[in-house]
Amino acid sequence: MMSDDGDSSAFIESCMDRVMAGGRITIDEAERLLATDNLAKLAECANAITRKFNGDVVDVEALINAKSGRCPEDCSFCAQSTFYETGVNKYPLLPTEQVVENARMAKEGGATSFCLVCAYRSPPDKDFEQICQTITAIKKEVGTEVNVSLGFMTPERARRLKELGVKRYNHNLEAAESYFSKICTTHEFKDRVNTARIVKEAGLELCCGGIIGMGETPRQRLELAFSIASLEPDEVPMNILIGREGTPLEGMGTIEPEDAIRTIAVWRFIMPKTILKIAGGREVHLKEKDRLALKAGANGIITGGYLTTGGNEPNRDITMIQEIGLKAK
């Protein structure tokens, strides 16, 4: 750890000043920031960067697992992979009416965007058409912002989603390129990058993040952040692994809340203007320290639950945001 003294404060402030002036930090500087034991100063400076570029608004998003399980990929963290017996509830694509009702409840609960997530490598044509009909119905009947996550994309499908009014497409890089083969063997890191680029070329906003706590080194967490930053995403969800029973990572230990917050803060230095969203695992790993995370670089949350795990009630999260002097959007 970097010693907790004036030198560490001066270094953190110098990095902050450069970022706030439009400059960048290097991966070696990011590694030094990540190693600091001066968490209070790191959080303070990450918060200053967030406020400068993003104001005092927290992006609150709800999602639905609209098609669960039977995914043909072998991602080691995923309870929905067909490779693992995890006891997850498996079901085909939900009817349009059910998804629309979930979107309506999310909006009434205070979420300002709704993400439709499906466990596919890529949807079959019949399912893709139904998803398009569902998007149209949500836009017409609920009037909320619609985001989607459907696996690998073609340029034609990405343009179709854009025409339907989808705002943002989620496709995470998941892990650092140097660690990716330890996490997944059924596709490559470059395949994920390719879909991210297709999405942006179609004019959709890109949501692209990853998972920490999968056995990667601290530097690989930074390598992942720099790879994500190179794609210039509009939103970056940071997930913290919950080792689900039946997956290869089920025995992975928990991350200390301070380590997660330190990572969030340094990712903010690397990506000053994005929506940096604390997502899956925050309730388990951060517990009540999610308040600190929102004053240490994060400016977005997923509320109401995730793909295969529950989450906080939206009204609880919105109250928490207001109590720390921020605004839910």
Rank of each mutant, 00 (worst) to 15 (best):
S3F: 08
M20E: 01
F269V: 07
F11C: 09
L164Y: 00
I211H: 08
R268D: 02
L241D: 07
I261P: 00
T263E: 12
T154W: 02
G243I: 05
V88A: 13
E216P: 08
T134H: 04
G110L: 14
E129W: 05
R282G: 01
I198Q: 06
G246A: 11
L286N: 00
I275V: 15
G209L: 11
I212T: 13
P248R: 04
L326A: 06
R18T: 08
E174H: 07
F128A: 08
L34W: 07
C184A: 10
A196L: 01
D290Y: 13
D59T: 08
L34A: 14
D17V: 07
S8D: 11
N172T: 09
N172I: 11
S149R: 03
A106S: 15
F226M: 03
E223R: 02
A30S: 15
G300H: 04
K327F: 12
N65F: 11
K52V: 04
C75Q: 10
E256G: 09
G87P: 00
P248M: 11
R244H: 14
R51I: 14
Y169N: 01
N299L: 03
A40I: 03
G243R: 06
K126R: 13
T309S: 14
T26Y: 05
T154N: 02
N315F: 14
P272C: 10
M20V: 05
Q133D: 15
I264C: 05
K287E: 12
S68D: 11
E188F: 12
C118D: 13
C208S: 13
T263L: 15
I275C: 08
L39R: 01
D59F: 10
A260P: 05
E313V: 10
C15A: 15
A196Q: 02
R219E: 12
D191S: 13
A175K: 04
G110N: 13
K287S: 13
I318W: 08
M20P: 03
V57F: 10
L93F: 12
E288F: 09
T217F: 11
N65H: 15
T36P: 05
I278N: 05
F83E: 12
A158R: 02
I261K: 00
Q220I: 12
Q130C: 04
K167M: 05
A279K: 06
P218A: 13
I301C: 03
E232R: 14
T96C: 13
I301T: 10
G151E: 03
L93P: 01
G87T: 01
S68T: 14
N315M: 07
L34M: 15
M320V: 13
R219V: 15
D74A: 11
R70T: 10
P123R: 03
V117P: 04
R104V: 10
A111R: 09
V117W: 05
